[in-house]
């Protein structure tokens, strides 16, 4: 088995907040040698057009994610339990913004 050595720097996930009160949303990832440089790179890559008022950087390795093989047991059960979905309620016409 051949292995390839990654000569790039550590990978970071970037979360960008677009306005006060809004959630930090995942914008993408990038390489950087440390957190301060990750912030600077994120500023250049993801907010150079003024998209952000705040940025979080997180080492990718610190994120634990579901895997594609988890899809069935994790997410399927909800589908056949229709009572979990609020679709049996009648919404009065005067209620707006739901």
């Amino acid at each position: 088995m051949s292995t390839t050595t990654d000569t790039q720097w550590q990978l970071w996930e970037i979360f960008v907040q677009s306005e006060t009160g809004a959630p930090h949303e995942h914008a993408g990832s990038l390489h950087a040698p440390d957190a301060e440089m990750a912030l600077q790179n994120a500023r250049d890559v993801y907010s150079r057009r003024g998209e952000a008022i705040s940025i979080w950087v997180v080492p990718t390795q610190c994120i634990t994610a579901t895997t594609p093989s988890d899809t069935q047991p994790f997410f399927d059960p909800a589908q056949d339990k229709i009572y979990r979905h609020p679709q049996f309620y009648h919404v009065p016409k005067s209620v707006k913004g739901l």
């Binding site: 790039q8 720097w9 990038l30 390489h31 600077q40 790179n41 250049d44 890559v45 150079r48």
Partner: peptide, 11 residues
């Protein structure tokens, strides 16, 4: 040397 630095220097 690396994509992110390429963008920074161009900026």
């Amino acid at each position: 040397p690396i994509l992110e630095e390429d963008i920074a220097l161009a900026n």
